[in-house]
Amino acid sequence: MPAFRTGLVVGKFCPLHLGHELVIGHAARQCAELIVISYTKPEFDGCAPARRERWLRSRFPAATVLVLDDARLAEQCAARSLPLRRLPGNDAPDDVHRTFVAWLCTALLGRTVDAVFTSEDYGDGFAATLARCFGHPVRHVCVDRARSAVPVSGTAVRADVHRHRAQLAPVVYADFVRRACFLGGESSGKSTMAEALAGALGSAWVPEFGRTWWEQCDGRLVYDDMLHIARRQVDAEERLAADGCAWLSCDTSPLTTLFYSLDLFGRADPELVRLAERPYDAVFLCAPDFPFVQDGTRREPPFRLKQHAWYERALAERHIPYVILEGALPQRVDRAREALGLPPYLKEQP
């Protein structure tokens, strides 16, 4: 039997870390119903409301989640024919925040709570204000005030997300992993480069799904395979992002699949065209500046030059900045690291 009918947890959750999850999880076990409210003004980089909502719903699917910024709050007010309100700033007095949360519960969610869960000393005052606004007792439950169970803070995580990745659930950390995409014609070294950079960074890499699918189909692809390949490539990126370390190394993108769809079939599915616009934090184009290697799956050497020229046009048309990688593998890895703002890893051989 739950100790409380309805519990409440309020926080910025910028980002949602395991300390927050400890409090929310404890509240979920103690309450028949749990409300989780998140707002911050100003916002923090990388922690937009949509992300915070996705994190909370993913980790606590049974909870009632309300994540707000001023625009979202305005929509909520309009939908309920309520006077327009704005979020209080983070530096507003405590009582302003407490009465605002009480209003959110009654005006937007249509309910009150009988327990509020925090890991802070201010929780007693918070509960007292809620009790006054609701007209019934509200108990404060303090969880791990000493931060001994999960020694972490949002400030520390924001200062260096990657150093504190162990304090984040994979679904949260994945949103802070940036994507480096490697493009290039057949036998231009993009797969080797994607794997090499991941190894140099101690990170993960996403193999080219199109090649895997081509092999599974014995080289006989049909038009519908193109969209399937693009979707699976994106799915692999999303799945492997949490295994990355600051950067995820991606061997090709849906832009590659768009090229093959147009080249093989003279057309492309509208969804594939949209997926080909998928943004990356860094794009590298591998130059065809070493001997062509025929592994039994590739087309003739001139096709490699055709691909390279197509990528140059496609990237320019989309106003996507990119870095050309030339020379031997060590030079390419060092050039990529330089472009990512990282120190050299593989030194040029004398």
Rank of each mutant, 00 (worst) to 15 (best):
R5A: 14
G11V: 12
K12M: 09
K12H: 13
H20N: 09
L22Y: 11
G25C: 09
Q30I: 07
C31W: 07
E33Y: 04
I37A: 07
Y39W: 02
P42N: 00
D45I: 03
R51W: 12
R54Y: 00
W55M: 02
L56H: 06
S58V: 13
S58H: 15
A74S: 14
E75K: 12
C77E: 06
A92V: 12
P93M: 03
P93A: 07
D95E: 15
R98I: 00
V101S: 00
A102K: 11
L104Y: 09
T106K: 06
L109C: 04
G110P: 11
T112H: 05
D121V: 14
D121I: 13
G125P: 02
F134Q: 13
V138W: 03
R139M: 07
H140D: 01
V150M: 09
V152A: 03
R158F: 10
V177M: 03
L183F: 08
G184K: 05
G184I: 07
G184P: 09
S187L: 06
S188M: 09
K190F: 11
A196H: 05
L197Y: 03
A198P: 11
A198F: 09
A198R: 10
A200C: 13
L201Y: 02
E208C: 02
R211G: 10
T212L: 11
W214D: 05
D218E: 14
G219D: 12
Y223P: 09
D225S: 09
M226L: 14
Q233M: 07
Q233R: 04
R239D: 13
R239T: 15
A242H: 13
G244D: 06
W247E: 00
L248V: 06
S249G: 06
T252Q: 06
P254W: 05
T257D: 11
F259P: 10
Y260T: 03
Y260N: 01
D263L: 04
D263N: 11
F265G: 02
E277L: 13
E277I: 05
A287G: 02
D289T: 11
G296Y: 04
R299T: 14
E300G: 00
W310V: 01
L315F: 00
L315N: 08
E317R: 09
R318I: 06
H319N: 14
L329D: 05
V333D: 01
D334M: 12
R335A: 15
R335N: 06
R337D: 04
